[in-house]
Computed example of a mutant assay.
Amino acid sequence: MPDTRDTRTSELVRMWIDGWAVSRGSSDPIDEPWGWTIDVGQPRHVSRHVLPEPTEGDVRKIVAGTSAPGTWLKLFAEEQAVLPWVGPGWRLDSPGFLMTCHLAPERTGVPAGYTLTSWTRGGVSRVLVRTPAGHFAARGQIARAGAHVVVDQVETAAEHRRKGLGGLVMRTLQSTAYEAGARTGVLVGTPEGRALYASLGWTAHSPMTSLWYEPSDAGR
C-alpha cells in the first residue's frame, strides 16, 4: 500500500490522541521532541509513545530506553519501514489507518430484532446494540475534544456481523457528534473496519504501525 500521509498528519494525530485520552481516561498527552507520550495505567498497556512522523533515530532511542513491558509504540508509517528499527521483545499488533470524516446528520434505523441504547457521561457518548434477550451485539463510543470527536472501540459480536450493526453504531455516533456541535470526526481504524468507514464517507490519511513491548522473560 502506498504511503498516503499528507502534510496534516501531525495535526490529525494530535486531534486523535486528544480525543482518545478522553475516551480512555488516560493522562493528558505529554509533548516530546518526536511526538507525545501518554500514561494509560493498565497492566498490559502502561504507556504509549505516539510518533506522527517516525524517524529511525527517534524510534531506536525510544526502544533503547524502554524496559517496562506494556509500553506501546504508535508509529504513523508502514510496518515494513519501521520494523527494522525495533529489536527483540517488540510485538506487532494489527495495523491501523488514520481517517477523518466531515460530520453531517445521519438517518438511522435499527434492524429488526435489535434494540439500541445511547448515553453520554464525562464527555464520552456511547452506543450499545442488544438482542431482545439483552445479549451484546455491537457497541461504539465517541469523545469530544474541542471542535472534533474521536470514534473509539467500535465492535460487533462475531455472530451479529454483516447485519448492518456497525453502520448503525457509526451513524448514531456521527449524528450524536453533529448534534453536539462537532463537524470533524477522527479515528484510527482496523483493516476490517476500513471498508465500513470508507462507505460512510471517511478518508484515510496515513497507515499506523502498532507495537508493544513484551520481552520473552516478562512475568517470570
Rank of each mutant, 00 (worst) to 15 (best):
T4G: 01
D6A: 02
S10C: 06
E11Q: 14
E11Y: 12
V13F: 05
M15K: 10
W16K: 04
I17Y: 04
G19T: 07
A21P: 03
S26M: 00
S26E: 01
D28N: 01
P29T: 10
I30D: 13
E32V: 06
P33R: 14
P33L: 10
W34D: 12
G35R: 03
W36K: 08
W36A: 07
T37R: 15
V40M: 11
V40P: 04
Q42A: 02
P43L: 01
R44A: 11
R48K: 07
L51S: 07
E53L: 15
P54C: 11
G57L: 04
S67N: 12
S67W: 06
A68R: 10
A68T: 15
G70D: 12
W72L: 11
L73Q: 06
F76G: 04
A77M: 06
E78Y: 03
E79H: 13
A81I: 13
P84T: 15
P84M: 11
W85M: 11
G89D: 03
G89E: 07
W90R: 05
S94P: 10
G96I: 02
L98Y: 15
M99P: 12
M99C: 12
T100V: 10
H102T: 15
H102R: 12
L103P: 00
E106Q: 14
G109R: 08
G109Y: 07
P111D: 02
A112E: 05
A112D: 12
A112Q: 14
Y114V: 06
Y114S: 09
T115V: 14
T115N: 14
L116R: 07
S118N: 13
W119F: 03
W119P: 04
T120M: 02
G123K: 06
R126D: 14
V127A: 01
L128V: 02
T131K: 08
G134P: 06
H135M: 03
H135A: 06
A137W: 00
A143Q: 02
R144D: 01
R144G: 00
A145E: 08
A147K: 10
V150Y: 09
V150P: 12
V150K: 11
V150E: 14
Q153W: 05
Q153H: 04
E159K: 05
G164N: 00
G164Q: 04
G164R: 02
G166S: 01
L168W: 03
V169E: 00
V169Q: 00
M170T: 13
M170K: 08
L173G: 09
Q174K: 13
S175D: 09
S175V: 00
A177P: 05
A177I: 08
A182C: 13
A182S: 08
T184A: 07
G185F: 00
L187I: 08
P191T: 05
P191Y: 08
E192G: 00
G193K: 02
G193A: 01
R194H: 10
L200G: 08
A204V: 15
A204Q: 13
H205A: 04
S206M: 13
S206Q: 09
P207G: 12
T209C: 14
L211C: 14
L211N: 10
W212Y: 15
W212P: 09
E214W: 13
S216L: 06
R220D: 07
